[in-house]
Amino acid sequence: MTNIVEVENLRVKIPVSAGMLNPVRGLTFEIKKGETLCVVGESGSGKSLSAFSLMKLLPKIADISADKMQFMGRDILKMSPSELQNMRGNRMAMIFQEPMTALNPSYTIGNQLVEVLRRHQNVSVKEATERAIYLLEKVGITAAASRLSQYPHQLSGGLRQRVVIAMALMCGPDLIIADEPTTALDVTIQAQILHLLKELQEEFEMAILLITHDLGVVARMADRVAVMYAGEFVETGTAEQVFKQPVHPYTQGLLSCIPVPGKTARGSRLGSIPGIVPSLIGDMRGCAFRSRCPHANGACHNNVPLEKWSDDHFKRCVLDDTALTSIAKEAIA
């Protein structure tokens, strides 16, 4: 399968009053056609900044660099502003976390849907409107035609998120970046939206980069998973590998945070990882997780590369294989 996205050593730097913030520190990943890559990690780990980097939609003060950052074979970092504009919303579209504020309050749903298709394709208002109605029906909105003349404030959060999804689909993109698309919604709506995304992905053969901090969402959606901690991937692999054989102590910590029906005793304390994320200001050496890691030793002060663990399964940890294997066994026991 062909890679739609290829990124090597993506870094984001933001000057802040206390020094240089390094919220994204050398990410390498690829996304294949039609697959879902889930990036999972705690709040502040740099997930959103990484996602926005792909669209080059960061605040001006942020500095993005990468050895390679290609989308459909083209170098994103070398694109001119107008080439970027032609790509955004067209080949690469975005779904946001906050459906309540993602739509412009002054324009109708129809206006905002039609606008994006007309921006990228030479179609009439009528054709664009037909496409909008078709997609609104696709995302499960009833009486789609009459919704076109409504304003965002007239729709509920769940409906608005469906509109945002329809908007992302207007040009039939190759990649959808969804930054916590269900975090702001209640649980039943969450499940519906995720189900919908999966269906649409198959129908339109889109790749999805799904950002989340919810492992339940990862389990439902992911083909491959990248676990992010303090601006780095600490473990990557297929969903199966990461869920069944988590090797990195951080992944194990995350997994122990979710209760498993039948396994977790009623009333027992949920696992949580003690400690806080280290400051990302200035240079940093060694494993970022060491201060919170139950298995840390002196070697953790050295820089650790992302190393192969098994096929497609990578980890960033200095512990040797036997140690990790035994920890891994312990974790899934």
Binding site: L57, N86, G89, N90, A93, F96, A102, N104, V116, H120
Partner: peptide
Amino acid sequence: SDYIRTARAKGLTTKS
């Protein structure tokens, strides 16, 4: 605001 980010993510021109 968020909807301006949305507008940018849609690839709209700076003018728009």
